[in-house]
Design a binder for these strands. Structure first.
Lengths: 346, 346
DNA sequence: CGGTGGATTGTTACCGGTAACGAAATGGGC
DNA sequence: GCCCATTTCGTTACCGGTAACAATCCACCG
C-alpha cells in the first residue's frame, strides 16, 4: 500500500476542480457523453449513464460556468439598473430578481443610478454596454431612462420597470395598481370627499400609474382629486408637499404614492396642528416594514415587491430566450391601520 | 469601388463582437501583440502600438470577459451573503459594494438569507459552493453564519461583515462605532442617568459592538446601562422591547441599536402615555432616510453604509489578490434631532 | 447471415482570450 | 561588418465546456 500511496502522491494532480474530462476518464467514456448527460439528453445507455452518474458523484463535479458561457456564446449576466438600493421597495425588487436569477443560473450586475441626472444615466448605460450582458432589467422606469435607452439602441432584450404605463395606455401591466380603488373605496366609505394626492415625479411611470388609479377610482364615486402635489418619493418631499398646501386648503385625507411621502406628510400635518387621523387621514403605498410602527400606524397598500422582482426577471428571461413574455399581475393588498378614520364633523 | 463593395458585402462576417484576432488582422499584427497591448505591456513598438490602437478604435473592440476568465482561471464574481435587502442599511452596503465591484471588473452574486434559519444558511452556502466565485462577502455577520462558514471550509477568501468584534476582542475594526460615545455624551450632558438600551440580537457582531460601545461610553461617566433589552433589528421588536419593560421601570432615555427599533420603541412609549422627548428621549443608529421625518424626528448616528460597502469590497479584493487588507475605519456621525431633550424634572 | 437504419458514442474543431516559448528584428560594442 | 544580448513579435498550446459530424453498435429484416 505504501507503494501505491507514493504513486498516488506523485500522480496527485494539482488541486483543481474536476472537469468533464476527469469525469469521463473515471467513467470510462468520452467527455461528450458526460456533456450530453449533463445537458439532460436521453440517448444514453443505462449502464453508461450509471457509471457517469457515479463518477460525477465521487469526483463531486461542478460545471465551469465560464467555459460553458464561452462555448455557448451566451452570457448569463443580467444588468439591473435601479434607483438607490437604500430604499425598501427597490431593495426588495432586486432581492426577488436576484433569487430568480440564481435559480436560472444567472447573476445580476447591479448598477445604481440617479435617474434624475442625465449624465449619470448615460454613464450607467455606457457601463452596461461594455459588459457582456444577456439582458437589461431597468427597474427605475422613467421617461428619461426610456429616452436614453432608445438612444442607446441595445441589441439585447430590455425590460423596463415592472409596470406598464396605464395612464398613457402603454404595454400590458405587469404590476397591478388594482388595490388602489379599494383604498379609495375605504376612504369614501369613511366619509372623505376632499382628497389630496401626493404623487411621485411625473416622469416616473409608476407615479403616473398610481395617480391615474387614484383619480380613476374617485371618478367611480363621482368625485375627483381635490388637488395633486408632486414629490420625489422621499419623506422630505412628502413633508414639503403638505407645507406647500395653502393654509386655507380644505381636505380631509392625504393619499401619498408611497409610504415615505406619507410619513413626511404626517409630520408636516402635525406641525400644522392637524391630527392624524382625527383631522386628516393619511395613506401610503408599499407597506414598508416600518409602516405599522409609525405614529400613527399607516394605512397603506402592500405591494409584494419581492414577487415583482421574480416576475420581472422571469419575463426578461423569456425575452432572452426568444419567447414572448406573459404579463403577470402582481396584486397589491390594502392594509388598514390607524392613520385613516372618518373625517371630523364640521 | 463597386467591385470592392461587393466583396465586402460577401465577406461581411455574421454580426458579432470583434475579437482580438479581428483587431490583429486589421492592424496587421499577431493577436498576441493585441493581447499584450490590452494587458498594458510596454514592449511594443510605437508604430505597431499606434496601428493596434487605431484598429481597436475603428472596430470598437470590447474584451470578452468570459474568455478572459476561462483563460486566466480567475473568476470575477463575488458572492454577497446578506440579510434582507429590503432594509436600508444592508441595501446601501450592497450598493456601495456593487459600485466598487464594477470598478474592478467584478460582479456581485447576491444571495439573501435568513440568518436565523440554520437550514437556510446551509442552503445559501451550498449555493455559493456551486458557483465559481473568487470570494465571499458575508455582510450579515452573526455567530451562526461564522460557524457555518467554519464548517464549510471555503478555499476562497471570505470577508465577514463590516465590523470586527470589539466586544470579544476580535479582528481589527473596519467599521467604527466611534460615534456612540459622542451620543452618550450628549445624553448625559442633557441630564440623563437612567438609560435603557435596545440591542440587536446577541448573535450579531454588530449588535454586540454597539451594546459594548454604549456600556463602555457610560462607564466613562461612571454610569451603566439601567437595562438592556434585546430585539431583532425590526421596528416590531423595538415596540415589543418597550412593552416588555415593567411598568415601574425608571428610565429617561432609550437608545436603540438601530433606527427601526427606535421607531417601534417610540410608538410603544407613546402608547404607554410617555411623551418623546418630554418624558423619555429616544435615539437610533443608522440614520435611515425616514429618521428626520418621524414624529418626533429621530436623533441618531449616521453610519455611511455605502462607504462601508466600498471598503468591504476593497478589502475582499485585496485578499483575493493575496494582499493583506488594511482595516479602514468608516466613521459615524451623531445627528441631533428632536427625539432627545433634557429629562423631565421630578 | 449480410444489409440496413436508428441509437449511441467518439473525434475533432471551436468559443476568445492568456501563457510559454521560440523566432525575428534591433542595436551596440568591437 | 560581425556577433551577441535585448527587444519585439509570432506560434502553438491550453482553459473547460459545446457543436457538428463521423464512427460504431445493435436489433431486426429479408
Amino acid at each position: 500500500m505504501s507503494e501505491g500511496d507514493r504513486i498516488d502522491a506523485i500522480e496527485e494532480p494539482p488541486a483543481r476542480q474536476p472537469t468533464i474530462y476527469d469525469v469521463a476518464r473515471v467513467a470510462g467514456v468520452s467527455h461528450q457523453t458526460v456533456s450530453r448527460l449533463l445537458k439532460g439528453d436521453q440517448g444514453i445507455k443505462p449502464a453508461n449513464r450509471e457509471r457517469v452518474l457515479q463518477a460525477l458523484e465521487t469526483l463531486d463535479y461542478r460545471p465551469n460556468l465560464t467555459a460553458r458561457s464561452l462555448a455557448t456564446r451566451r452570457s448569463h449576466r443580467v444588468a439591473v439598473l435601479t434607483q438607490e438600493l437604500g430604499q425598501v421597495g427597490p431593495g426588495k425588487v432586486v432581492q426577488g430578481a436576484a433569487e430568480e436569477a440564481r435559480l436560472h443560473g444567472f447573476v445580476l450586475d447591479i448598477i445604481t443610478l440617479d435617474v434624475g441626472d442625465r449624465s449619470n444615466v448615460e454613464q450607467g448605460i455606457r457601463t452596461v454596454n461594455q459588459q457582456d450582458v444577456a439582458g437589461i432589467l431597468a427597474l427605475a422606469s422613467t421617461d428619461g431612462l426610456r429616452a436614453a435607452f432608445d438612444r442607446a439602441d441595445f441589441r439585447i432584450p430590455v425590460l423596463m420597470g415592472g409596470e406598464g404605463d396605464e395612464a398613457t395606455g402603454g404595454p400590458p401591466l405587469q404590476v397591478s395598481t388594482v388595490a388602489i380603488p379599494e383604498l379609495v373605496d375605504h376612504l369614501v366609505a369613511l366619509g372623505h370627499r376632499d382628497i389630496v394626492h401626493i404623487a411621485g415625479p411625473k416622469k416616473w411611470v409608476a407615479a403616473r400609474n398610481r395617480a391615474f388609479a387614484f383619480s380613476n377610482a374617485l371618478k367611480h364615486h363621482g368625485l375627483r382629486l381635490t388637488r395633486t402635489v408632486y414629490g420625489d418619493w422621499s419623506a422630505a418631499s412628502g413633508y414639503e408637499a403638505v407645507r406647500s398646501l395653502p393654509a386655507r386648503a380644505r381636505f380631509t385625507a392625504v393619499c401619498a404614492a408611497n409610504d415615505q411621502m406619507a410619513l413626511g406628510a404626517m409630520l408636516a400635518l402635525q406641525e400644522r396642528g392637524l391630527g392624524v387621523p382625527t383631522d386628516v387621514s393619511v395613506t401610503g403605498i408599499d407597506d414598508i416594514p416600518e409602516a405599522a410602527y409609525l405614529v400613527p400606524p399607516l394605512t397603506t397598500v402592500r405591494m409584494n415587491s419581492e414577487e415583482q422582482g421574480h416576475v420581472a426577471f422571469r419575463n426578461l428571461l423569456a425575452q432572452i430566450n426568444g419567447e414572448t413574455p406573459t404579463p403577470i399581475m402582481v396584486e397589491g393588498r390594502v392594509i388598514l391601520r390607524k392613520s385613516t378614520a372618518p373625517p371630523a364633523l364640521r
